[in-house]
Amino acid sequence: MRRYLTRKILIYTLTFFLAVTIDWLIPRFMPGDPIRNMLARVSVASNASAIQMMYDYYARLFGLDLPLWQQYLNFWKALFQGNLGISTYLFPTPVIEVLKRAVPYDAFLLIPSILLAWYAGNNFGAIAARSKRLDNFILPLSYVLTATPYMWLGILLAWFFGIVLGLFPIAGAYSFSLRPTWSWTFVLDLLHHWFLPFASLFIIDFGGWAIGMRNMIIYELEAEYSRYLTALGAPQRLIRRYAFNNAILPQITGLALRLGVIVAGALVTEVVFSYPGIGYLLLAAIQNQDYFLIQGCFLFIILGVLIANFVIDLVYIVVDPRTRRGMVGESA
């Protein structure tokens, strides 16, 4: 058990190290020059020598005038101090500050939509696997839902509920006429803006989970043990319970992966609804060639994926006895 954990931790550390190194390479690999892009954003009424001086100044500021190995070491040093550099797009705001402002919106939008969709999808999938009539209805619906591109559903919802019916706002996290305060007006407004992006994420995820669960249960129901139990005359309920318990495993893996790519998954939804989470930020960073901000967003994604995977590895040990045998290796 301990050996297994040590090995896992070692591998995760290695993965982290490699991923972060690749992450560090991003701004250095780009053929463009982040500072030149920053200075060029708005034309400056000054002559070339002044721009060169400004260039040197900012290069020093971003530490880009040092040798590469020095930059690499500094990057790690800064990383452990929670310093991810300065955003060029939002100069002079530190990247970490920018991320801190975006993360709550992400959590607020994504955690409820992912968990609720997972929960509801699995339950409906399990029910569908049980009844032919429900299956005929839920299954096609789920297939259509899970086949829908996020942005298209977002566009449709925004167009129909936002523009045609005018029921919901289609952009931002709260109204432009409000200042964030702790009041019902503000909270309701926040929820009002949250609903459409939430719904578009929930609906699509729901379809995916429902299908996954339905298929897994049907596989389990035909497995040897189910047949054996049926032959023994065990009650259907008990067999289904076992099937559910086994079928949920891949769904947990799926959930971990989903939680890990939380940001990428919501990117287009956040873009459609201008919802100020990490995904939205990432797109702005890409469009503005803010490599330091891109680097920060990616670091956040890397951490998310690694932590989610690690937790799932731990959960697997608890819920699946078969894994415990597998983890000792071939020799068993």
């Binding site: 801190k100 402002r101 709550p104 919106y105 959590a107 607020f108 955690i111 409820p112 964030p180 305060t181 702790w182 909270v187 926040l190």
Partner: peptide, 14 residues
């Protein structure tokens, strides 16, 4: 959970 998150994002914006 949602309300906790709401609370967590409070200080940053309020």
């Amino acid at each position: 959970l949602a309300s906790l998150l709401l609370a967590a994002c409070g200080p940053a914006t309020t």
